[in-house]
Design a binder for these strands. Structure first.
Lengths: 361, 361
DNA sequence: CGCTTGTTTGAATACGCATTCATATAGTTC
DNA sequence: GAACTATATGAATGCGTATTCAAACAAGCG
């Protein structure tokens, strides 16, 4: 005997409350024109029947789904999983839902983006992934706004929000030069992405302004991952006559951590004793005891807020041509991998670090 | 001049292809009864018009949304963010979408669950969060299956998938006892959750079988987080005459890492030289160079597969009373925080560790 | 050839809500 | 009390697809 799960609809509630279906709809709509007593009556009836408004149906008839798609490229980099987390929190707080997608390393996210478009989401956030221009124009055609997060635009007509890589790179160069570094090793990231390139540019520009010439700077390819930079460092110092720098700049934290692990485990190099080192991003892992990474933190919360803001504005349809490229400054975080930094109240800092990592089962 | 973004519908495609709307629908439905030439004609027309089937509308009329909600309780514990990642990957591979939610620490997830129910998702996965029995019965009423992930059931009628905490705890006790530990310190987790309790039980039971009495075992409360266990360890060893154990068992990896950082930074205690230590979960952070944590890994992939399997089965409606409590065994991972373990090919292991952490920008 | 079985197809409809529009009621003003 | 304005309400309709259902058609068989 299969019980047909007939769902409770707004009509059922309407009947019980002695009103029409639209009235039920209005009772659940903020700022709707409805008398207080009716609303109460409807809500009571709804509660009695365990009525749950069907958001899918609402989406269909109102043409807004209250869903935002977030496409995350590299879930292995904690920065992006932290970002996803921030998006979920922020959207949830504003009564919207997150449709989460991931994209395999390197592969473009067209298929995934297509899925998102099919659900007629209110907007799409793309993080660390490559999208084809076909899909971009398709999304325009369909009227679903896209925003790039921490990704500068190959297509400048796309809305994007990111951290100022050039400025951030400069901050780190400042700190290292001030700490006395005369020779530098740069561990690059993804050669495709502009992020790595800009960070390196900012870093080198600042060094140049201090009179550090190219001959004092070496660059190696770190593959943009923990494993990649671990290997890159290993290869570098295993080579016959390796350059032995005063300072290392890894273009992101997860790579910086890979460098530290390799330097310590394979070459017994002390940090910052033998070599000073810095990363970029401000991920939680960087604040763990063994690292205490000096880095530049991307203002994730602000970036997320800004991204959703732009996405929403686009959505208002006022002028959908309003593409904005928003760049927020990075925040210098003094750690213990660059010597001589005045840590802000060491004890407090540690305490703060501990809290910031947190984690509860 | 506001251009009305009139979307391309199946009717438009039908007209262009010279068929009826249902035929268009069938063209996009696998195994549908449709002639090959018609399907081709429809698909061609669809491509020409940039037609994207509206999944929202499909959900409404077919009563299946192809969306699974995943509610994550503690995003600060990397185990759960890894789990979310695994769910996203798995569901995406089977052409389903993930509606992702987070729940504040400790708060029950009723509000969030309600949101999920409203979207008439095909199923809901709840991870590390407390749900009220009201909501459970509501979900039953609405016919949306719920599965608990890594959470044993207070309500035994709920489907759940978890790792065998008792067995896993036993494995760690085996290893530590074999390494010569005679006295133990246990850092407990969330007193509400059964996970911590069961892991401790398995650990103590095994010790008891080796003749280790209660007098040789101390338990302290680690608050279930990095910060909590860091402080717990600090307080313990700061006390006037602290018990100085041979071994420490932290009920999860993130706590174990907190313990290690505190022991090293504040008490200059070497691991495993002075004290051996183990965690539980198998998170990526545990494999970083400075830790190399000995632990028990939860088989996330299998657990995810199993969870979705059960969720789907429930969905078939055959017998929705088929609640299953699935328990998968944990896998012992020898690390360097318990001495004397035969690491499986040290070089290979390191290499594998490096790869497993990865991360690409 | 008449009949059955099986495959395609289109007309009609359901899905559950939001929205438009016209009507009805209450509230104001002179 | 007439003439308005503001507010509440319900009837009707639309959103874009999947799913009956019955009709049309082809094929197989005695």
């Amino acid at each position: 005997m299969k019980r047909k799960t007939t769902r409770v609809t707004s009509y059922d509630v309407a009947k019980l409350a002695g009103v029409s279906q639209p009235t039920v709809s209005r009772a659940f709509t903020p700022n709707a024109s409805i008398a207080k007593d009716k609303r109460d009556r409807v809500l009571a009836a709804a509660k009695q029947l365990h009525y749950l408004p069907n958001s899918i149906a609402a989406s269909l008839s109102s043409a807004r789904s209250n869903i935002v798609a977030v496409i995350v490229g590299d879930m292995h980099n904690p920065f992006y999983s932290e970002s996803l987390q921030a998006f979920i929190n922020r959207l949830q707080a504003t009564n919207r839902q997150v449709l989460a997608f991931t994209v395999e390393d390197g592969r473009d996210c067209d298929a995934v983006l297509m899925q998102a478009l099919r659900y007629h989401v209110d907007g799409i956030v793309v993080t660390s992934a490559n999208l084809s221009s076909d899909l971009i124009s398709l999304s325009r055609e369909v009227g679903i706004p896209i925003a790039l997060f921490n990704r500068s635009t190959s297509d400048p007509t796309l809305t994007s929000v990111r951290c100022d890589s050039v400025q951030g790179g400069g901050l780190l160069a400042d700190a290292m030069f001030a700490a006395g570094a005369q020779s530098y090793l740069i561990v690059r990231g993804d050669p495709q992405g502009s992020t790595s390139r800009l960070r390196v540019k900012g870093f080198r520009d600042a060094l140049a302004s201090f009179g550090i010439g190219d001959s004092a700077i070496t660059e190696i390819d770190g593959g943009s991952s923990y494993a990649g930079s671990y290997r890159a460092i290993s290869n570098h110092f295993d080579s016959p006559a390796p350059q032995f720098p005063d300072a290392i700049f890894a273009v992101n934290d997860i790579m910086a951590i890979g460098c530290i692990d390799a330097l310590r485990a394979k070459f017994n190099i002390a940090i910052p004793g033998d070599i000073m080192l810095a990363g970029f991003d401000g991920i939680r892992e960087g604040r763990l005891g063994p690292y205490h990474l000096t880095t530049v933190r991307q203002p994730i919360e602000d970036m997320v807020t800004k991204t959703l803001d732009l996405l929403g504005r686009d959505n208002q349809g006022e002028k959908s041509a309003t593409q904005v490229n928003c760049v927020l400054p990075g925040i210098f975080i003094p750690g213990r991998t660059v010597p001589g930094l005045v840590e802000i109240a060491p004890d407090k800092a540690l305490e703060a670090d501990i809290e910031s990592i947190s984690g509860k089962n």
